[in-house]
Every structure is written in C-alpha cells, then in structure tokens.
Design a protein around this nucleic acid. Structure first.
Lengths: 274, 274
DNA sequence: TATTCCGATAGTGAC
DNA sequence: GTCACTATCGGAATGAG
C-alpha cells in the first residue's frame, strides 16, 4: 500500500477513524482533506470496491452491477450537497453568532464552493473535491497546488453528468467522426430529450472536451501562469505574490460576514485533525 | 562606494585595519579573503591608484609612471611568495608541533598552492589569489565558486608574466594575423632574447589564449561540470557531492601531516577575523 | 564572477 | 497528480551621510 492508497483504510473501516471522518454511510465517506488547499476542503469518497479505482472522468459514464452511471452521479450529487452543508456548518462555527448571516451563507454556498475532480488524481481512490474558492491555506504551497484547482486540470462535477456524455454519444453515432456544429444544432429538433438538451445551449459545446493526455495535463498545471480566478489578475510564476493577493481576496470575501475574525480561521487550521 | 570597492578602504589606510591586514608596505597589502574558498586563502592587493583598476589580464602588460609591467610582475611575485609563507605559518599553527614536517610543508608550498586571478573579478581593485587547492571551506557554496578557481576562468599568475606576451607580440608583428606555427618556430633563431624564448617551448603556444569574452567566461563557470582537479572525477552539477568528495580529498591531503586534527581546522574558521 | 535573502524549479523517496 | 526534504538555479538588493 503506497501513499496513493491513503484513502483505502478509511473506506474499508470508517468506524475506526471517527476523528477524521465527518460523515459515512454504506455508500460514501466524507472527510476533510488532510492538507486542505482552502479554508474549507472536503472530499466525497465512494466506498464501493467496484467503483473506487475507476478514473474520475470515466466513473459516471459506465454502469456497475448494482447501479448505473447516472444513478451514481445523482447519488454523489446528494453527498456533494451534504459536504457543502458541512462547509456551511464550519463557517458558522468559525464566526460564532452568525444567525444573521444565513442569506449570505446561502449565496456563499451557491457561488463560492467548487466541486469537481482532478484529471490526474494522485490518490487512487475515486474522490470528489468540495472546496471553497479562497485557496487560502498553509497547505497551498506551490503552483501545481493552485493550478490543479484553477485550470482545465480541474473538471467541475457538473461537467461529469453522464447526461452530457450521452448526448455526445448521440451526436457521434448520428453524424460520424466528421460531424460538426451543424449536426449538433440539427438534433435538438428531433430528440425525445429536447427539454434536457435545451438546458445546455450551443455555448456548452465544450462539455465533453476533457483533456486526457497526461503530458498536456502536466503542462497545464506546471506551465499555466498563476491567475486569480476572482479578479483575473495574473501573477506569472510568482507564487508568493499570488499568495499575498489571495489573502487580500480572502479578507474581502470573508469580511462580508459579521463577526469575521481572521484569528478564528488560523485557529481552525491549528485545531484541524491531522 | 559599492560592494565592488570593498578593498578600497584597506589599500587607502591599511593601518586602520590591523586585524584584517596580515601584511602591508607601500606597495601592497596582503589579507585573508573574508570568505575563504579553501583552508588558506590570501589576497595580494597592490596599493597604487594607477594600478588598482587595471584589469588583471592587462595589469602586467603595460607600463606605469614609476614601474614597468615586467617590474610590477616581478615585484608581485615576491609578495606572492610572502603570501605562501603566511600559508605555511598558518599550517604550522594549525598542527602545532610541526617541526618534523618542514620537508612536507615545502612540497605542499610548491605544488598545492594556486596563484592567479579571476578573468572577471567581482571586486574592482586588482587582487591576486593565493589559495590552497583543497577548496574545503564553509564559504565554498556553489558551482561558480568552485569553477572560478578550477576552469580557464582562473588564470595562473605564471601565465601573466609579460615576458610571454612580449614574445607573442613579436610573433604577431613579424608574421601578421595569418601567422602560424612556422613563423613561431622561425623567430627563435634571430631574436636577441633567444635564451628567454627557449625557456618556453612549442608546447607553450597557449600562453596568451586568455579568454576575454564575458559571455563565454560566464558560461565556463556556470556550465562546466564540477570536476575534482586532484583525481579527475566529475560530479556534473551535483555540488553537494563534490563537497563530500573534496572533504575526503582534504582528509587525505592534510592527513599527511603529523598532529593533523580536523577540529583544529574547523576552529580556524570559527576564529578567523570577519 | 562579492554576499545574502528570497523564491522558483527539480528530483528523491515514501511502504 | 500526495507529502516532505534536499538541492539547484535565478533574480534583487547591497552604502553612506
């Protein structure tokens, strides 16, 4: 068992690690990332042996003995929501008397939490990241950390919905490899799933363009200039300057909450389970 | 006054720095390098304002108001000998009762001390390095330190003898730029300085080939693989491995002396004036 | 090529 | 692509009154 199988013992015997595992049932465990790259950083990890070693870009596109890919996706979506709720609870804990902030917390939950997977996971057990977008953390230590969440190396959970891939298959099977946008536009008129397809307009053409070439992906996280996803400012290769900037962004973002206290966040890191 | 003029105050007022300056008279000061790159590392620094800012590769090739280049070279040679004697005194001090080692010390003096200049000095005042060949020192910290003494970037004092350049000039003036080895061989028969030229045979043809191109010189110290000048072993860019090897070579070399004690050498560094 | 400080870059080993 | 550790490599500032 190498480092890459670090989650194996958790999904096998969650009851043995009560301090680490925030939630578990027969389907998943939810844990805090041991090296969180943001103030809040959770992982949703399916427990099934049949599923755990499937590549994250394939996991929801195939069917299993007891569950279809679509059903697995929908199921995981419920656990992602649970992880988001854990984040909200964390925030309430950090800011103490936050009853007045519930509206802001909802907005926060809906727009400031990223959910998705790494195109090349280092840890082999399938896991879904649920992470706040501050990237303010002592464990955020170099360019690859940041770019693995802020480039195409990171694939949003919504882009993994097999419904999108199913449509892609439909297009391909009808038009063949040479099919272009015209084929794509034409099939919205005769599919039985029009209502669903209409939810994703032509500007969603990229939905199945997940990069799988490992060299290309490594290049993306190694070579892409560091860019703040909030304000768009680029920092080239100057990671420490990005860190300073992210800290400013973080103070602004979390400062919207009453009782915001940076020391509470620092304490959060010091108290976190190792 | 920038860092590059660090020696200026010493040559102006040597009497103000008695703890740093090991020897001084009207012509030169001799100091220990403040960041010695070997167990023993002295600098011979001419005091004359007329001379001090001449490039080391030119300094002995031109005449001054009160001294010719050749006279300056011969004069500096006497101070180089004095610096070597200071090194011998250092070694005696390190090993304490070394009366029995005088023969070995003479051999050491004649074959283990390098004398010369850097092709691109960082400190502007003309200075001649007189340094033991161990390169065992806490101040030996990176590749450029080592290569600045162990590649063509370092020009031996013997190669700066203007006698050699004078002969080169003779060749060039007689044969023109296209002149080759035939011209070189022919002029030994009709020069009034035959006796001198005969001291440097045809295998000394490289005597004036000092590289002056700055880019080329920078490349030499930056790119040349690290190579032990004692045993010839190459260490590529692995400076720390070279350091370990040099330490072994040093233990062997200095172990030839009675009463060798490595801790004495370490103490030597800790006690050295800063 | 002076030093020192900081930081970016690169390779390793981990059980 | 995990971490932590070591080391290599790269730029920038450096003083004095």
């Amino acid at each position: 068992m190498s480092f890459a199988d670090a989650f194996q013992k958790y999904i096998k015997s969650p009851e043995k690690f009560p301090s680490i595992i925030k939630y578990h049932d027969d389907n998943v465990i939810i844990i805090r990332d041991l090296f969180p790259k943001s103030v809040c950083h959770y992982l949703v990890i399916p427990r099934s042996n049949e599923i755990t070693h499937i590549h994250p870009l394939d996991a929801f596109y195939k069917d299993y003995s007891n569950i279809t890919g679509q059903e697995l996706y929908d199921l995981m979506e419920t656990y992602v929501t649970k992880a988001k709720d854990l984040i909200i609870e964390d925030l309430k804990g950090m800011f103490n008397k936050c009853e007045l902030n519930n509206l802001k917390l909802q907005e926060f939950k809906n727009s400031f939490i990223k959910v998705g997977v790494h195109s090349i996971p280092s840890l082999r057990n399938l896991h879904i990241h649920v992470i706040t977008s501050d990237f303010e953390s002592p464990s955020m230590k170099h360019k690859k950390h940041y770019n693995s969440f802020n480039t195409d190396f990171f694939v949003g959970f919504d882009k993994l919905n097999p419904m999108l891939n199913k449509r892609y298959q439909t297009i391909v099977s009808r038009s063949g490899p040479a099919g272009g946008e015209e084929d794509y536009a034409s099939d919205s008129t005769n599919s039985e799933d029009d209502n669903i397809y209409d939810d994703y307009g032509d500007d969603q053409i990229e939905y199945v363009s997940h990069i799988r070439n490992e060299g290309m992906l490594m290049n993306i996280i190694k070579q892409s200039p560091l860019k703040c996803q909030s304000c768009g400012k680029s920092f080239g290769n100057k990671f420490q300057e990005l860190k300073k900037h992210l800290h400013e962004e973080y103070l602004t973002k979390y400062g919207q909450f009453d009782n915001f206290d940076h020391d509470n966040i620092v304490q959060y890191y010091e108290d976190r389970p190792r």
